[in-house]
Design a protein around this nucleic acid. Structure first.
Lengths: 205, 205
DNA sequence: GTGCGATGTATCACAGCGATACATCGCGAC
DNA sequence: GTCGCGATGTATCGCTGTGATACATCGCAC
């Protein structure tokens, strides 16, 4: 859900729509884009709900010019106290809604702010969800395999492998979480040196 | 798009809603589900457009009982001549709409009915789309890497690998297509024996 | 004989997408 | 010096698809 993502990003610093979208891309990567077509309506909704405030940064500048046709300055969004509360509330949510395809990635992106126990529960929920799906597809596939043509079969096989891959990824993550954090050094699978300070997380510097 | 999928499935045989959904699951596998919430409205739309007809199979049975409250029999959907035309039209479409995340899989599932040249164009389009996305994300990632926390980074990395994987898959498929079909035997990556007759495809037996 | 899971049709509120529109700013080409 | 162009910036609209929900029927196991 976009709401969680916005809350999470504004938790770090106030932003306006355009920046918000850039951050969204930078945070979610290949996972999700979120167009303006959903961003702006969501911001409106969140403002009405009281989670965020809209500050028109150019208001003073505009005040000088009388009724300039629909002049829109940058609108800076800030988290309110209620917004912070709401964020914590959503972070703690480890039910089915957090392990759906569309939601899981957003939850994961803010794992740094999430309680370790909740992290594991979400990871595991996601994994069983995926395993269920995989079993369902495997069963149907077994029953219909002979009727399917080359391409359909290839699509299924590829899909199944993708799910497998994510399950394996999740399993690794769960083990790491259970062990109480990332191991000091991993031999492969990441040219990325772990830059973030291992023990103390959360909050802006 | 659901429309293409429905057209494709009805092209093989007439079906009613429930069966249609089962077939959808069997055909698309992990890739997509399509709920009734979109299926029925789509069927209605397609009927109105003239692509399909609705036959109430239980109409006679109902006729005996006078005005049984909202009695709904099975509704069997059949492709019309215009529907077949429309199907061919959509199959031939190799533009951007065919290489989006949501659409590509459906197009791919009906590659057996698709012109070989179109197949390659869709495959290549999909691949460049993915490569563009990957480059975009890589660039942003390079700029922001240091500011990102462990989890965000992991999410990005995982996403990038998934995209990589699909690109590799597509590349293999493109090569196979270019070579004019599947090689007689592949050593691994498929316990599935190729059942479909290699040269002559298309059309019902 | 009764309940239960599969079969079957349908609607509603809602989220997110893609296209589109429009305005401003900085900057390099001409 | 101005002209256009790509980045920044805000916003709406129609559409597709989802998930929840409702309800009816059928076969069959207990």
């Amino acid at each position: 859900m976009l709401e969680l993502a916005v809350l999470g990003l504004l938790h770090e610093s106030p932003l306006h729509g355009y920046e918000l979208r850039q951050r969204l891309k930078a945070t979610l990567g290949t996972f999700r884009a979120f167009s303006y077509g959903s961003l702006y309506p969501t911001l409106r909704r969140m403002r009405d709900a009281g989670w965020i405030t809209e500050d028109d940064g150019d208001a003073e500048v505009v005040a000088g010019a009388p009724a300039l046709t629909g002049r829109r300055g940058k609108v800076v969004y800030k988290l309110t106290a209620e917004g912070k509360e709401r964020f914590q509330e959503l972070l703690a949510e480890a039910g089915p809604s957090s392990w759906e395809d569309e939601t899981f990635g957003v939850h994961f992106a803010f794992f740094g702010q999430t309680d370790p126990a909740v992290r594991v529960r979400i990871l595991e929920g996601r994994r069983s969800r995926l395993e269920e799906r995989r079993e369902g597809v495997r069963t149907t596939l077994a029953r219909t395999r002979s009727r399917l043509d080359r391409y359909t079969l290839q699509l299924q096989e590829h899909g199944l492998e993708s799910v497998d891959r994510e399950v394996r990824w999740l399993t690794e993550l769960i083990e790491t979480e259970r062990a109480g954090g990332p191991p000091p050094q991993t031999s492969e699978t990441s040219t990325t040196s772990q830059i973030t300070p291992p023990p103390t997380e959360r909050g802006a510097p």
